[in-house]
Design a protein around this nucleic acid. Structure first.
Length: 289
DNA sequence: CTTACGGCCTGGGTGC
DNA sequence: TGCACCCAGGCCGTAA
């Protein structure tokens, strides 16, 4: 479910209520998605949430001890496919598949719910936090055009794979990849190395537009996604290709197609996004010649 | 460096 | 009503 716009929306909701709160207790259900479950109860109670932010699809909670020399920890949360985080009254009914309860010092709770448990939760030190987050690629909304373009030059992978690769850009997932490629009118099977500078320019702009608009509409709710207040997003109403197989392209009227590209379901307009023929990168061409 | 594939886990939809 | 099957917004490890 959650890609950059959804995680951003969740984080904005959490930012309104969490900073300054102290965690008083952690209760656990199933823990197979938590790197070190015992560490949660060991390190979190008594610590105060200093900040909440997003890096790519990760939610980053920085926690400080109540005395000055206490070690700082970071709680890193990834929502996977079906993860949800909400805050609610401690007495609120418990949704099925809720596996982590963080009791807060104002009598409320932050709860983590995840049907499929593809999410992850880790306690990190400041050093390991920076090492982990440093593996990620560019923030697609902050990258300059030059930085963005450089990530695709010479890459022989398909655009679909590159856009989904968190080491290239951090935060793109299947929905926003397809929506961005449609707006840039680029076929998901095209190779990074074969894009013209005009196409890279259009792609950069399309990615920013799609993500910005999706954040404004508080994300896409296809099935499970809700924000930190339990509200659904509305960007799914603006999808132009995603899950529109067989429906008319809103630009040209052709039937939207679905194909597996880079192992993932991909939606595109066969007329607006021309499929490349026998692709070869420059290097392969040179080899053949 | 790259792709392809299976696996993690549960639930919803479809078709018989 | 049951059941088999396919699909799902993410990501990792393995093999080729």
């Amino acid at each position: 479910m959650p890609e950059l716009p959804e995680v951003e929306t969740v984080v904005r909701g959490l930012q309104r209520v969490l900073p300054g709160r102290r965690i008083v207790e952690v209760r656990l259900g199933k823990t197979d998605f938590i790197e070190d479950p015992a560490a949660l109860g060991q390190h979190l109670p008594g610590r105060q949430i200093a900040s909440v932010r997003r890096t790519g699809k990760f939610i980053v909670l920085d926690l400080v001890g109540m005395n000055r020399d206490a070690q700082q920890f970071t709680l890193l949360i990834h929502l996977g496919m079906t993860g949800q985080i909400v805050t609610c009254a401690a007495a609120a009914p418990i949704a099925p598949h809720t596996h982590v309860f963080f009791a807060l010092d104002d009598g409320r709770e932050m709860r983590y719910t995840d049907i499929r448990r593809f999410g992850q939760m880790r306690i990190l030190t400041v050093e390991t936090r920076d090492a982990e987050l440093g593996k990620l690629g560019l923030d697609p909304l902050e990258a300059t055009e030059d930085e963005f373009v450089a990530k695709f030059l010479g890459r022989r992978a398909r655009l679909k794979a590159l856009l989904l690769d968190q080491r290239v850009l951090r935060g793109m997932g299947n929905i926003y990849t397809d929506e961005s490629l449609f707006r840039a009118r680029i076929h998901p099977k095209r190779l990074g190395a074969n894009l013209s500078s005009d196409e890279l320019h259009k792609l950069h702009r399309a990615v920013r537009e799609v993500l910005t608009e999706a954040i404004r509409l508080r994300g896409s709710s296809i099935s499970d996604y809700v924000d930190a207040d339990g509200q659904r997003g509305e960007f799914q109403l603006r999808h132009r290709v995603y899950q529109r197989e067989g429906k008319k392209c809103l630009r040209c009227g052709a039937a939207i197609q679905r194909a597996i590209v880079a192992g993932r379901s991909s939606y595109f307009c066969p007329k607006c996004q021309r499929e490349p023929r026998a692709q070869s990168s420059r290097r392969a061409k040179r080899k053949r010649a």
